[in-house]
Every structure is written in structure tokens, then in C-alpha cells.
């Protein structure tokens, strides 16, 4: 953890709201990107990002500084995303007549081949099992080392590597037509 970050965390622990707001600003983009890639829904990602920071504020005293503050936030955001996907999976068994289908793509702005590829990628990533998807997003998009992912998920490094390899094996045939 950088000196500035640890100082901010210490100040936030003592009830300094400005210090906590700075931590929120520094980490908001990373948390939003992860929750958006995990859920595929912008509105849900906004909610989960807010919930992540609120949970961090509430449990700040429990943060012992053994990992970096952003790793701790990643853990909270990961759990919130996994819980959301679990709830959604349960709810998907109960169809609601007349309700509009939830948009699962990141962006739906243009109809070009490029956009089609992006949608296809998002769809392929969304089809991954939740834990493999989480490992893939943390590794590929957040460029997190395997050791740190293992610490965030409280799994062994070899388990994380296996999850990543399995995710790639599933993505490869799904994106074959676009290469």
C-alpha cells in the first residue's frame, strides 16, 4: 500500500469523511469496471459500486492493512457481484410476464461489426460460470497478479490459475467466428 493510501485509510478510520471520499474517488473506476463486467448491467453496477463503498465505510475498522485497500475493496465488490449473480440465477427461474428483457451488453450504441464483436465478447464472458468470470476479469482486465487474485478470493494460486485456464478454453471457441 502506498504511503498516501495508508495515511488516508488511517484518517478515514478515525472518522475523517474527506479522507474516505478521496479513497472513493481513487477507486471508483476500478470497482465500477469490475461490477459492470461481472453483471453486464450498468444500473446494477452503479448500485453494487455504491454498496461496495458503503460496506467498506461500515467495516473500515475491521480492515487491518494486511493487503492493499484496493484489494480489500476488490474482495467486497467481488462478493457483492457473485451474490448478485446467484440471486439473479434464482430469480431467472421465475418468469415475469410482460417485463422487458434485461440488457446484458456493456454498450449498445452502434450496429457496426466492431460493436457486434464487442457484444459477442460480452456475451461469451457473461456465459462463463461466475467464479471463472471473476478470475478472468480480475486477471485480464484489471491486470491483477495471480497471487493477489488468490488473496482476494481466498483461494490457492493454483486454483486461480486453473480457473483462468478453463475460462480461456471456453472463450476460445465462442469467439472463433470473429477472428
Amino acid at each position: 500500500m502506498s504511503e498516501t493510501n495508508s495515511e488516508l485509510v488511517a484518517r478515514a478510520k478515525n472518522g475523517d469523511r474527506q479522507a474516505f471520499d478521496r479513497l472513493v474517488k481513487e477507486n471508483k473506476d476500478k470497482m465500477f469496471a469490475l461490477t459492470l463486467r461481472m453483471t453486464g448491467n450498468r444500473e446494477v453496477a452503479l448500485d453494487l459500486t455504491q454498496e461496495t463503498f458503503f460496506a467498506a465505510f461500515r467495516d473500515l475498522r475491521r480492515f487491518r492493512g494486511e493487503s492493499s485497500f484496493s484489494s480489500w475493496l476488490y474482495r467486497i465488490a467481488s462478493n457483492k457481484s457473485l451474490n448478485y449473480l446467484k440471486r439473479k440465477k434464482i430469480l431467472s427461474f421465475v418468469p415475469i410476464i410482460g417485463s422487458p428483457a434485461e440488457s446484458e451488453s456493456y454498450e449498445m450504441n452502434d450496429g457496426t461489426d466492431q460493436q457486434e464483436l464487442k457484444n459477442k465478447i460480452a456475451e461469451a464472458v457473461n456465459l462463463l460460470p461466475p467464479k471463472q468470470k471473476l478470475v478472468f476479469n480480475l486477471r485480464f482486465y484489471e491486470q491483477m497478479p495471480f497471487g493477489e487474485i488468490a488473496a482476494v478470493l481466498k483461494k490457492s494460486e493454483s486454483t486461480v490459475k486453473t480457473n483462468y485456464q478453463k475460462a480461456l478454453e471456453k472463450l476460445k471457441p465462442a469467439l472463433k467466428d470473429f477472428r
Binding site: Y106, E107, L171, L175, F178, R179
Partner: peptide, 12 residues
């Protein structure tokens, strides 16, 4: 595959 996936950027 890596190249394709890197094109999937989200709007910040």
C-alpha cells in the same frame, strides 16, 4: 483471442 478481448472496453 487476446486481441479480440482487448477490444471490449467499457465506457468509464
Amino acid at each position: 483471442l487476446e486481441e479480440s478481448l482487448k477490444q471490449s472496453e467499457i465506457t468509464p
